[in-house]
Simulated scan of single mutants.
Amino acid sequence: MTLRSALYSGRVVHERMRPKRHRLSYRVFMLLLDLDEIDTLDRSLKRFSRGRLNLIGFHDRDHLDDPRGSLKDVVLAKLRAEGLDAARISVLAMPRILGKGFNPLSVFFCHDADGRLVATIHAVRNTFGQRHDYVLPATRTVGGWVEQNARKAFYVSPFLPMHLRYGFEIAPPGEAVHIGVDVLGEEGLVLAATFSGERRDLTDLAIWKALAGHPWQVAGILAAIHWEALKLVAKGFRIFPQDRATRGLRRPASPLASTPPGPSARAGSSAASWPGRAP
């Protein structure tokens, strides 16, 4: 049986343009998991598990407000709240490694019954244990890329203010995948972040090779995030504190009440800055 799920090995790159230049680049790997195939993968792979400790794993509760819910049903409900619908859903995310993990950004690809990509959900998480979603329609441009925009609506990095906009550029998963996010301010591009990866069949051997070839990911994404934060502090980057009203909340109330409703207005970003547009 041919599975749609896969492993993508590649690199995350961040380019900060202002107020000072800063660049980071790390090799990482991500899993593309069709939500209807995860249990099959759990049964067929020795080194991958769903919701259990293993070399790598996927935990539904990392993406759910209520851990008792069905992940697919929750995603479908979020789509329908925006007037969208889908038949097949896959998620591109970093796996847990030996039970530990942190996903700054997971992207849900939502297809209709004919296989057309109709929407994406950019599920973003910050280092304060909070998360939020950008639920956006997916309109392909010439060349098959998807371009989307949203106003920043959630506290992410302490080195970025809230009054920013996001521009997403996506080459949907195939033999390769590209996820890009431009962070834009009044003066133009503030940060460009990207993940670009090449497809591998999701096998036990591929999992071993991925672990051996991505040492920072094995050590921990949170460790890398805090290491880069120390560099930014040393360079004198300004810190923007989180609004007191949202501190300690798992999923802060949406600050979009004054924004006209619509798919492009819904957003959420909850992770240290991540994938962005190709520089």
Rank of each mutant, 00 (worst) to 15 (best):
H132W: 14
G129A: 07
I121D: 10
C110E: 09
A93E: 04
T120V: 15
H111W: 03
E147S: 08
S106V: 06
L136W: 06
G99P: 02
R131Q: 04
V146A: 03
P137I: 07
Y134E: 01
N103G: 06
L105K: 11
V142L: 11
F128K: 11
P137G: 05
Q148R: 13
D133L: 11
Y155H: 14
I97W: 00
T127E: 05
G144R: 06
A153N: 10
A123G: 00
P137E: 13
V156P: 00
G101M: 10
T141N: 09
A153F: 02
N149L: 10
V124T: 06
D133A: 06
Y155E: 00
G115T: 07
A153T: 10
V124Y: 05
C110H: 05
T139K: 13
A138Y: 04
A93C: 13
Y155I: 02
I121Y: 03
T127H: 05
G99S: 06
A138I: 03
R151L: 12
T141I: 06
N126G: 05
Q148M: 15
V107K: 00
G99T: 05
H132Q: 11
F108R: 04
P104Q: 06
G144H: 11
D114E: 15
A150T: 14
F109C: 01
T139C: 01
M94Y: 06
Q148C: 09
A123M: 03
L92Q: 02
H111A: 10
D133H: 13
G99E: 03
A119T: 06
L105N: 04
D133Q: 10
L92R: 04
N149P: 00
T120L: 15
N149R: 15
V107G: 03
Y134C: 06
L98H: 12
R96V: 12
L105M: 15
V142W: 11
G129E: 07
L136V: 10
T139N: 07
A93T: 15
V107H: 00
Y134L: 08
Q130F: 04
T139F: 01
R116P: 02
V156C: 15
A138M: 04
L92A: 05
F108V: 03
N149A: 13
V107C: 07
G143E: 12
L98C: 10
R125F: 05
H122P: 08
P104W: 05
R151Q: 11
R116K: 07
G143W: 11
A153H: 06
A93D: 01
R151V: 12
L117E: 07
R131E: 04
R116G: 02
K100W: 14
D114S: 14
R96A: 13
L98T: 09
G115Q: 09
R116T: 02
M94G: 12
A113C: 03
F108P: 08
G144V: 03
F128A: 13
R131N: 08
A123D: 15
I121R: 05
M94R: 14
G143C: 09
L136H: 07
V142N: 10
N149Y: 14
